[in-house]
Nucleic acid binder design. Sequence first.
DNA 1: GAGTCACGTAACATTAAAAGTTACATGATT
DNA 2: AATCATGTAACTTTTAATGTTACGTGACTC
Lengths: 157, 157
Amino acid sequence: MRQDNRLPRVLHALLHLSDMKDPATSEQLAGMLNTNAAVVRRTMAGLRDRGILTSIKGHGGGWQLARPLEKITLAEIYQALGAPTLFALGCGDEESQCLMEKAANTATARALQLASETFITALSSVTMADLAVDFEKRLAELGLSPDNLHHFADQHH
Amino acid sequence: MRQDNRLPRVLHALLHLSDMKDPATSEQLAGMLNTNAAVVRRTMAGLRDRGILTSIKGHGGGWQLARPLEKITLAEIYQALGAPTLFALGCGDEESQCLMEKAANTATARALQLASETFITALSSVTMADLAVDFEKRLAELGLSPDNLHHFADQHH
DNA sequence: GAGTCACGTAACATTAAAAGTTACATGATT
DNA sequence: AATCATGTAACTTTTAATGTTACGTGACTC
């Protein structure tokens, strides 16, 4: 499989959305994320279905946050993306009849399961608001005031 | 990327090797693993370089364990495979200049890093001997004596 | 209410990495 | 010298994300 970058991409998009008053079109977001509008729609669809985003058609339409950043955990976003396969590693054929293969597969699956739980737990403990704080810190480190210079932080504009 | 099943496949192969007195040829292992001899050679090459296996050319040659199962951890095998990418998920473009994207990527990378550490730790705590014990248990559960019925456990034969 | 904007979605092409396959060179044994 | 088995390169296949194009539908403006 190719590498799945939807999670960081969506986080990135949500941060931009939180910074905008008006709805952002798929076209605008695609520009910020260096991708295609259809990809944005496809990727964001799950977040809309989960009530994280709203989408509005027609003039002045686009994407908006449906909730404050504090109430959106990264784990929920991961779920909204369909909880895509975390691992590039597989644990072998589940239906094998060879007991040696079963032992091998079980051991692999166990390690992957533990890693998966760690991943979900880590995502659960972080909200989008935490990311926004991280962003503000990065801004401040560059000596920029968070109040009036947000747009400088975004190289896309 | 496609799913990487090398780790469970190698574990499976090592269990079979531990059960054989004579070296097993790539052809034989390929039969047990339902794959191709060239794949076996390619996959096992890293284990040979790490001193986990020895390979012998010519008549009566093939693959053998270079150490007792107790002294082979799953983590070492994973390393011997080149520590292939664990995750199907990426953490975005590392070189982005957008501070929002950096915040998003960092958060994703952090969760992946924790998961990765859990995975390696889990692999480190298990040796091939543990897998052999697991195999014996599975044999016993089927009501078979471990002493003289090993070959029944392997559906390949 | 016609035109335009923006989402919704399907269909197809592209891409990346493991895995499968084929072929042949090299070394070891008989 | 013949045969066996590894070592390795080159190429094809596979799979899921991603990129792309196209068109339908709803919503707003005039």
